[in-house]
């Protein structure tokens, strides 16, 4: 048979589902449930902040994992992986030298040019720091390109805080450029040098100019509603707020239907959305 009734797209990739193999070069425990993975690919990933990869082990399975490092010129990819299922349980047992499969990067992500000259507020809850670190890193690395950055990072107890060393080192930087507010819901009798409370608590006291401020949010579904209420009270328009959403995804390429939020495919149009574009989308936030 020859000519097609319906020509396939010229970009038809017969290997769309084939992962590229990459080496684990470092694994570090971060908390009881999360490990930090540094992986080396055969070429640079070429990602934007906020994008994700499909990470797999042959014979076990594949899952979407946020990219936790800013754009890089080398072949390194960093991820934080929570032990939450069969694939991640096996991943947690890997040692440096292990080989994993990577597809991607996928998703919309953040466009750094949107942040040029802007003051940036990042509000993260729990594991939400992992993806937003990919945005925080390039902003902190180029203070002349961006305005100030404020990081509000909350988690349940001190034992669940991710990237503590980095949060502390960022908090020691030039106070006019970088400020870090670390919170826990409760100390659980552990040593703690941050604040106690929810991530919403510091928002009313932020010294910001709403006109030149962009906000990025990532956290558990319950967090968004309350943070958005506080941001509204501060006078920040929805068009200056970005939310990074989590969904079940099995393909990463807009085909499996799992991540669909109404007519929107989270893996294609998201997972990072400018909030005014999804504010009327039911089921987006909860």
């Amino acid at each position: 048979m020859c000519a097609m009734t319906h020509p396939a797209s010229p970009e038809l990739d017969p290997e769309l589902y084939l992962p590229r193999m990459a080496s684990v070069v470092a694994v570090e425990s971060m908390t009881a449930r999360e490990k930090f993975f540094k992986v080396e690919l055969s070429k640079p990933l070429g990602h934007r902040p906020g994008q994700f990869v499909m990470l797999s082990l042959l014979g076990i399975g594949e899952a979407p994992i946020s990219i936790s490092c800013g754009p890089r010129h080398d072949n390194i990819l960093e991820m934080v992986i929570r032990n939450a299922g069969s694939l991640t349980r096996v991943l947690h047992r890997l040692q440096p030298g292990a080989r994993v499969g990577i597809r991607g990067p996928f998703g919309s992500g953040f466009h750094l040019d949107d942040f040029n000259g802007k003051d940036v507020v990042c509000i993260v809850g729990g594991l939400g720091l992992a993806p937003l670190r990919s945005l925080i890193q390039p902003i902190i690395a180029q203070p002349q390109r961006f305005g100030s950055i404020t990081i509000i990072s909350g988690c349940r107890t001190p034992a669940e805080e991710l990237y503590r060393d980095e949060l502390e080192s960022w908090s020691r930087m030039d106070q006019d450029k970088v400020s870090v507010i670390r919170l826990v819901d409760k100390t659980a009798n552990l040593p703690w040098n941050g604040k106690i409370g929810l991530v919403t608590a510091p928002i009313p006291d932020l010294k910001i100019n709403p006109a030149r401020t962009l906000v990025a949010l990532c956290g558990p579904p319950v967090m968004y509603k309350f943070v958005l209420m506080e941001l509204k009270a501060l006078g920040i328009p929805n068009s200056q707020i970005f939310v990074d959403l989590e969904r079940r995804m099995k393909c990463g390429v807009g085909q499996c239907g799992h991540c669909q939020i109404n007519h929107v495919y989270c893996c294609q149009e998201g997972p990072v959305f400018r909030f005014d574009r999804i504010e009327n989308l039911q089921e987006a936030l909860q």
Partner: peptide, 26 residues
């Protein structure tokens, strides 16, 4: 058209297998 994706490995050798999409439903 929604689908799940699962890995199946060949019990006979343990070294080979497939990644397979299977129908799923909302």
């Amino acid at each position: 058209y929604c689908f799940n994706v699962v890995d199946d490995f060949n019990l006979a050798d343990g070294d080979s297998g497939t990644r397979t999409s299977t129908w799923d439903g909302c």
